[in-house]
Design a protein around this nucleic acid. Sequence first.
DNA 1: TAGATTGTTAATCGATTAACAATC
DNA 2: TAGATTGTTAATCGATTAACAATC
Lengths: 217, 217
Amino acid sequence: MNKENISKSVIRRLPRYYRFLTELEEQDIDKISSGKLAAIMRSTASQVRQDLNCFGGFGHQGYGYSVPALRDEIAKILGLNKRYKAILVGAGHIGTAIAAHLRFDMMGFQLVGIFDNNKEILGAHINRVEIMDSENIGQFCRDNGVQAAFLCIPRSAAKQTVKTLYDAGVTRFWNFTHYYIQGDYPEAVVENVHLSDMLMTLCYRINEVENSYDENE
Amino acid sequence: MNKENISKSVIRRLPRYYRFLTELEEQDIDKISSGKLAAIMRSTASQVRQDLNCFGGFGHQGYGYSVPALRDEIAKILGLNKRYKAILVGAGHIGTAIAAHLRFDMMGFQLVGIFDNNKEILGAHINRVEIMDSENIGQFCRDNGVQAAFLCIPRSAAKQTVKTLYDAGVTRFWNFTHYYIQGDYPEAVVENVHLSDMLMTLCYRINEVENSYDENE
DNA sequence: TAGATTGTTAATCGATTAACAATC
DNA sequence: TAGATTGTTAATCGATTAACAATC
């Protein structure tokens, strides 16, 4: 179904399409033109049509796109109908936040376990998912066919944890640490989230506008 | 100091340069060539030189770049030496995680307050910063000259909160909600973090490799 | 049918990579 | 000095935008 060589830029826009199409559907809007969708996406009609045509001709000439049909198509393209088994490692603040807030089942995953090495919280649950002892993480992943891990641990623990997981067949990672997984495991599928990088980018942009005020005065 | 028209791509790489240069400095490495830095950055020597030359000639021909000097320059370019006054709104899981983990003072910010409307946690502290009543948020920002806000609240509360903040002079946002701030405030400086979009992107990529296995079998 | 809007090709724009003279 | 490596210009590559024939 998915064509090859879809550019990274297109892929990064897909969740946004999905998000806005979901909102449109909730508003009972059942058709939309590339132009109107572009306005919502803060994009251009051309780009919308180019993006969607990477995956197939979902539109109807002279009419536009069916909102529910297009939303379904994008869900399929993203793989949101899948249930990849995932665990979350590290039930600190970030891990707890992630486990508590995200609707994994709406995003292609099933969270089957949470792991931490703080004995005091073992056995507790977050959204019905049990917090288990990190000691048993490899065995658990093998026994349950876990495919993905969300890493919410300190960087210092990352290398060893990923080794254990990779050996147990877990090869897809959502990585909140600064450990460079692909360096050691080129075959791994990794999505990095570097919050501190993003905050520094904000700082740059604030700085930039502050400086431009100075220049104009 | 900062030149104009630096591309978004370059800016997004700056925190990475800063991060790796910090590590190099910790290892007491005091000079590096564009080629070696590129290897660490998983980039190319050309790109490293192009990127750095957006801001000035920091290198020495025949020698390379001084690690501490370059790190300092990038810190200045990013504005990490600034102390923009910021508040965090929403002391739920994500807000608490952000407040507890990030070294704001290393990233150009000073966290001067945390706000929540859960009366039970008012007066508590996270990293010495007090949790205060959201009721008083506008007054606090005006009194303290707050410039930036980190929004860790539900989307439903975002529009009203941003209005209150903007009226109180807070115009820079780190936005964890899906509320589109720039739609209502085009002048605002906004850095969005859409965790669910990132997770969907991971799902797409997992899907992609799974499908490619199928094709090859 | 006429108007609207797609799918798709061509043109433009921007970012990355390559090349090389300048110079430490 | 010779070797190394930058700064910078030119070439390539990829992504976005524009244009328009196809068609509902």
